[in-house]
Each structure stands twice: as structure tokens, then as C-alpha cells.
Amino acid sequence: MANFTGVAVSILISLTAFPLVELVTTDSSLSAPLPLMLIGFGLLLLIALTLKFVLPQKCVEEQGKDAVEQRGFVYYTCCLFMWACTSDLCLQIRNHELFGFRKNTKYFEHGEAYLVTPLGIFAQFWNGIINYILYVIIIYQIDNKKDSRYSCLYWSGGILTSQFVVLVGAFTGSYSNKLEYSVWLNAVFVFLPLWILQHCWVKPRPVAKNFTRENSSFPVLDLFLCTGLVLASVFGLIRGLGALGSQTPLIKYYVEAYEPYMLESSKYGAVWPMYVAIYGIPFQLCAIYGLLHPGCQWMLNCSVVYAAGMLQVNVWFLITKLAC
């Protein structure tokens, strides 16, 4: 029988974010910049300890311990981040006066002002809805002894990409002179996903069959994919140079004619193409190698992490630019 205990408890605890966020952001003394950061870290610690108490680790046999994730660091991180997702959702619901809530923007005024940009708004809604669902899936998989490796890799690839885009834009763009202490809360949402990414990446897996070019079924498809990856790398390089402000006529024309948002002072339009150039091009070249040399076990891990980041932020930019 399926075990929904962890999911149910995590959902109930995550709902406490609504009254807590309401209390902190309504009181003027609590919502001042420094208290806001200290309360944020304090609440994260309190919720983490509560989760550890109400969802204790289970004694497990050593056999198969490496193959299936048990309640531990990954599990409690997902439970804690569910509470953070609800906090993000609460902040944007109050910001947009949804469901009858009265408007409250104190967190953005005294905390992370860059989250009122179209990208920041969409990032918080994505975290509050899509990432929340991913946490539910991972918690369910762990409680029911299912392999959560690729769910964790997909989630960590997505959240690390979003953190890079949002934070680099915040520190380099027009909002860099409005940063308050609360920006340091993001350290939790960078270092914990990084640890989980590393943990799932090196986690032992069943021995895979060794493939060779002779038993590859789709050499034509491989060639097609390699060509597409080369073209994507060239295109990514052009966009990356454009984001850096290259005055090369071709690149300058492309930016002004097709992606003028790269020139925005908030820098969010420029950070994403730079990320694709820095992270995407090396992966695409490694993927070409993997296609030419079948059997690379790291290829699947890379593909999952890459797909998560590319899908997430491309959807962000598509929706935010269409909405604007």
C-alpha cells in the first residue's frame, strides 16, 4: 500500500507559511530589512527541526541502501523547501491581491525588490507551483522506496539555473543598489541543491549495458542530433556575445532586431543568454561526444540536468516577454 504520510505532513506544515508570512510582513518592526533576514533564517531552522521531529528517520537494512534513497538530507530538504514554496506563493498572492487577499509589498520593499520584475514574479509562481509538485513526487518516491535520482537531478538542475539567472541579474542589474539583507536567504537555496545534485550524480546505479556503434539503431538520428547541437552551440555563442554587448555588426543587428530585451537595465534579459553560452555550449559539445561514443553513463545525468534548466527558463522568458 502506498505511503502518503510524508507528503501529507509536509503539505500541512507548508501551509503554516501563510499565517507566518502574514504576521512578519504586516508588522513594521518585523519587516525591517535586518529583522526580516534573521526571522527568515530562524523560520527555516524551526521548520527543519519540526520536520525532523514529526518525520523521523526509519531504521533500514544495509542491503540496497545505496540503490534507493532513504529519509535523510535529500528528504528533509524537499520537505523544508515545500514550506519555502508556499512562502513564495503567499508573497505573490498578496502582491497581486489574488483570492481576496489585501495587497502587501513590504517584503519586496525591505527584502528582495527584484522579485517584482516579470521574471521575479514568474520565478516565485514557478517555485510555488511546479517545484512544489516536484517535492511532493520526490517525498512520495523516497517514502515508497522508489528511485528518486532523476526527479532530484531534474529539480536541482531547474532550481540552480533559476537561482543563477535571478541572483546574477539582481547583483548586476538596476536592482543591485536596492539589495537588502534578505538576499542572503538565497544561500540556502543554492548550497543545498548543489549538495543534492552532487549526491545524486555520484550515487551508485545498476550496471548498464555497454553499447557500441555497431549495435546503435539510429546512426542517422545521431547525425541529425549532432548537427542540431553544433548549430545550437553557434547560436548560443552569438547570443552570449550579444548579451556581453558585442559591437560586431552581425551580433549587434541580431540583438537589436530579435532580442532587444538583452539591453534592458535589469540585466535579466542578458543573464539568460550568458548562462546558455557558459553552461549550455559545453554540455552540447559533451553531448556530441556522447552520441559518437555510446555507453557514457554520465550522459543521462547531464541530459536530465540540462533539460530541466533549459526548459524552465526558456518557458519563463517566453511567457514574461509575451505578457509584456
Rank of each mutant, 00 (worst) to 15 (best):
P19E: 04
T227E: 03
Q312T: 10
G72Y: 11
L322F: 06
I142A: 06
L20I: 14
N131S: 08
I139H: 01
W298M: 08
I39D: 12
V304D: 10
F164N: 02
K203M: 13
Y254S: 11
I11W: 08
S14E: 05
Y261H: 10
W83N: 08
G280K: 08
G269K: 04
C78P: 00
S174L: 03
G100K: 00
F4M: 10
A232R: 00
Y275I: 07
F317A: 02
E180T: 05
Y107E: 07
C324N: 14
L30W: 14
V230L: 15
T86K: 00
M310W: 12
F317E: 09
A287W: 10
I133R: 04
S266I: 00
V183P: 11
R71Q: 02
L115H: 09
Y135A: 03
T212D: 09
S10P: 04
L12S: 13
V188F: 11
Y289K: 07
L318A: 09
Y175I: 00
G236K: 06
I196N: 08
W184H: 12
G169F: 03
M82A: 11
L167D: 09
L38K: 13
C90K: 09
G169E: 09
A8M: 06
L12V: 09
Y254F: 15
F99R: 06
I121N: 06
A48H: 11
K146E: 09
F224M: 14
P206L: 11
G64E: 07
T86P: 01
N95S: 08
F81K: 02
L98G: 08
P33C: 02
Y275A: 12
V315P: 06
H96T: 11
T16F: 00
N95E: 09
K65C: 00
V313P: 01
Y76F: 13
V21S: 09
G173Y: 06
V165T: 05
K58Y: 01
G309S: 04
W272I: 00
C286I: 12
W83M: 03
G173W: 04
P193E: 04
S148H: 08
Q63M: 06
T25R: 03
C296I: 10
I130K: 03
N314D: 09
L179N: 13
W83P: 07
E97N: 07
P294Q: 04
K52P: 05
V7W: 02
T172P: 07
G290Y: 07
Y150A: 05
L160N: 12
S216H: 11
I137Y: 13
C200Y: 12
S162C: 08
L167P: 08
I142H: 02
A287Y: 12
Y261I: 13
N95Y: 15
L223D: 14
A67Q: 10
E256Y: 02
A123Y: 13
L46R: 00
D143L: 01
G111C: 06
I159F: 10
F99Y: 14
L241S: 04
Y279M: 13
A270D: 03
S29M: 08
Y258W: 06
K267H: 13
R205K: 14
V7H: 03
G40N: 13
L119I: 15
G269D: 01
Y258I: 02
S151G: 06
H110P: 06
L229G: 00
L44E: 10
V136N: 09
Y150F: 15
D222F: 05
R239I: 03
K146D: 00
E69D: 12
Y175R: 05
F122H: 10
W184E: 06
S162G: 12
